[in-house]
């Protein structure tokens, strides 16, 4: 290895361990981690909660009214909005991965840009729906 020049400087500044908290991840990596995390949460408790809600909505005689009364509780409403964000983030990031598979936007600059769009789209859509149901 060379002892001076740009290589040496790079060598000295190298992190000695991989602390995921201390490393500043690029946005596409953050999007990817959130995609995984939201995926797990959508599996559990997401799927059973979705099926239970569908059952109550469609089959219980007062299902809709029951849900409306549940949603007067601000904590539950907040939990619903948070779940909605997990879903919408997973949804938007997933569409980005489908596009990347088809080689749309897989250059570095475009990929960085689309990761910003995905993060923003998930948050904006969540806020819009939150406003609609509030």
């Amino acid at each position: 290895m060379e002892t001076d020049g740009p290589g040496a400087k790079l060598q000295r500044k190298r992190p000695k361990y991989l602390n995921l908290i201390e490393i500043r991840q690029p946005l596409p990596a953050v999007i990817s981690v959130l995609h995984r995390l939201s995926g797990v949460l959508l599996f559990f408790p997401g799927i059973p909660l979705l099926l239970y809600s569908l059952d109550v909505m469609v089959n219980s005689p007062q299902g809709y009214a029951q849900f409306q009364s549940l949603l007067t509780n601000p904590v539950l409403k907040g939990a619903l909005v948070l779940s909605l964000w997990f879903f919408l983030h997973h949804f938007c990031a997933g569409i980005r991965y489908l596009a990347l598979d088809l080689h749309y936007g897989d250059m570095l600059e475009q990929a960085r840009f689309s990761s910003k769009v995905v993060l923003a789209a998930g948050i904006v859509l969540t806020l819009l729906i939150a406003l609609l149901i509030w």
Binding site: M57, V58, P61, Q62, G63, Y64, A65
Partner: peptide, 9 residues
């Protein structure tokens, strides 16, 4: 937009 039980069902 469904606004009551009947419209959901």
């Amino acid at each position: 937009p469904p606004h009551d039980d009947a419209s959901w069902k």
